[in-house]
Amino acid sequence: MRGIFSKRRMTLLVLVALVAVLPLVFPSGYYYRVAALVWISALAAVGLNILMGYAGQVSLGHAGFFGVGAYAVAIGPARLGLASWICILLGAAASGGIAWLVGRPILRLKGHYLAIGTLGFGVLIALVLTSEAKWTGGPDGTSVARLAVANMRISGPTAWYWISGFVLVFGAWLALNLEDSPAGRALRALHDSEIAAALGGIDVARHKLWAFVLAAVYASIAGSELALFDGFITPDTAGFLHSIELVAMVVLGGMGSVLGSVVGAALLTTLPQLLTVFVEYEQALLGLIIMLAMIFLRLGIVPGVQRMLARSAS
């Protein structure tokens, strides 16, 4: 897998090609919007994949970090007079900090206690965002000031398509580098067997913690993007159902595969747009797809398809 056509480079190439070529077939701004939403969700999913695919842990409250990022760019500029881009960084720092604080004691425990801890934590964040109406606008949500660069307001699906696409490529590049770095190898060793990794001299808890922190930062930045793109945000963004959706993106696409996270995000974002005729059945279908994918396509779509192709080729 070394050389010019390593898996890492191919994945990046595919992503860059997708982002660059898709607009050629877009007939209207609506497609830009849906695609931008895909890139934004994909960024959060790629981050969550670092935790799930590499470190073998799951966060059931990841939308909480998404919400922190979103509300950072909503509250910061409006209430504290800060520039939006500073708030993106502040939100990311806050998310990383919270993840570190929450994760440190929990990740020392073996097993899947992080899932339970993050579940509680995610619901709490959503609850705070709903309750502290003076700051957050409460359950009705709050409007978000547009991102401005050099006095130019950035808005509209096309602008955000390119921004979110670029950020996603950058995020994927980071995640892929991490995969091939010593830390990434340590994480994967840990996914395979914690005991073996520990015996090999890897500080298991510390590596898991950093994976969690990184995943939180990705989600936070994605949240900031969505808030700035929509210009409006509600606490549902941080809710349990959104957390589940993010997890479903990663597992559907394929845990451990960056491209998989993007495919998972694309599927779950476009599905409701495709199923508008079957609105009544949307929820049942979504549940069924998640179950079936987990039972029969346990590797996820991208790794599963790759394996199938490899088999048919040999």
Binding site: M10, V25, Y31, Q273, Q306, L309, A310
Partner: peptide, 24 residues
Amino acid sequence: MTKPFRGVMLLTIAVACMALAMAV
């Protein structure tokens, strides 16, 4: 064909299908 390249093709087909389906 390398494995990832097949992935590209598949993905492209999938995206094309989606775009078609989305066309109202």
